[in-house]
């Protein structure tokens, strides 16, 4: 908090935690990821050249760390298939629906999950996401499209015509 930019990093923490939870599912691992991200951000803070927004920079760091971590896990697989969902994420009434959503989310590919969360939950612009995760904007769009179609197929069972007319 020595500079406004440092305060901005601190201000990113709640949304970094939210994103990490969606990405890594297990709260402990999600916070490991947040901790590593912050440590790297503070360590490289002097190298941040003010070329872009701090927020995309931070999410970019988290993206790189997460990908690295997945790669190393692939070599020493440690399966978490039976793991329970975090408690108290929602009121009981809609817990069932959210549980299905959580499951479908974790079944997406990492690339699709990242983009879906950055767009839908973190509300970043497509361009910002492209620069944070280092892919062309067209790739962001196609991942988003596949992620949304996959969720729709899994959660809505290929919506019946009656459901398609549903108006909010």
């Amino acid at each position: 908090m020595g500079s406004p930019h440092e305060a901005e990093i601190v201000a990113c923490i709640p949304s970094l935690r939210r994103y990490a939870r969606g990405l890594a599912h297990d709260p402990q691992r999600a916070d490991d990821l947040v901790q590593d991200t912050l440590e790297r951000a503070w360590g490289r803070f002097s190298m941040w050249q003010r070329r872009g927004a701090i927020r995309s920079w931070m999410f970019g760091i988290m993206h790189n760390l997460y990908i690295d971590r997945l790669r190393s896990q692939r070599n020493s697989p440690e399966e978490d298939a039976g793991e329970e969902l975090p408690e108290a994420v929602a009121a009981p009434a809609d817990r069932l629906g959210l549980r299905d959503l959580e499951r479908a989310l974790q079944r997406l590919s990492t690339e699709q999950r990242e983009v879906l969360l950055l767009v839908g939950v973190e509300e970043m612009s497509y361009r910002e996401i492209a620069s944070a995760i280092g892919v062309p904007i067209g790739t962001v769009m196609s991942r988003l499209s596949r992620a949304r179609e996959r969720l729709r197929a899994e959660l809505d069972d290929r919506p019946a015509p009656a459901k398609m007319q549903r108006v909010k």
Binding site: V89, A90, L101
Partner: peptide, 27 residues
């Protein structure tokens, strides 16, 4: 839209959790 809104309901509670003390809050 509905799925986006559900994702918020699933994940937004994380925003209100206390920060784990192990997170480094400054340089």
């Amino acid at each position: 839209r509905r799925h986006t809104e559900m994702l918020h309901r699933l994940l937004d509670p994380v925003l209100h959790e206390p920060l784990p003390p192990r997170l480094p809050l400054r340089r």
